[in-house]
């Protein structure tokens, strides 16, 4: 049982983060908080990939003469790490565009609270 928990607790922590992020995106009414939820959600996925790349008793994927590279057990899996570098940048780009949209919304309506915003949009 302990072993089972030991093997899987990281995934569950990530799921918790995912749910928090999703909750923020779907339920919060402040648009900025939605963006924060989005950031949490994206980063949780990144963590999941990184967790998947993990191997017990392995070192970072930089070639080290002390660890023979013929045996992949010696190094962490480099592929998910690489992919996540890309994913992080993609995430940042999305957040950037989200902020640009928030600026545009604020310029047009002077608020980022969804109920107020809906009210003002309806009264146009």
């Amino acid at each position: 049982m302990i072993e089972f928990l030991h093997s899987y607790y990281a995934y569950w922590a990530i799921i918790l983060l995912l749910v928090i992020g999703l909750y923020g995106m779907l339920v919060k009414t402040n648009l900025m908080k939605k963006v924060i939820g989005m950031i949490i959600f994206q980063n949780a996925i990144i963590l999941l990939f990184v967790a998947a790349a993990f191997k017990w008793d392995a070192t970072v994927p930089v070639l080290d003469p002390a660890y023979p590279s013929e045996d992949p057990v010696n190094y962490l899996n480099p592929l998910p790490h690489t992919l996540m570098l890309t994913a992080i940048v993609v995430g940042v780009a999305i957040v950037g565009v989200a902020f640009a949209l928030l600026i545009a919304i604020y310029r047009n309506y002077g608020t980022l609270e969804e109920p107020v915003l809906m009210e003002r949009m309806r009264s146009e």
């Binding site: 919304i105 047009n108 309506y109 915003l117």
Partner: peptide, 11 residues
């Protein structure tokens, strides 16, 4: 004027 908000929801 409403477009940025609909775009945000889409985002």
């Amino acid at each position: 004027r409403r477009a940025p908000f609909s775009a945000f929801r889409y985002l």
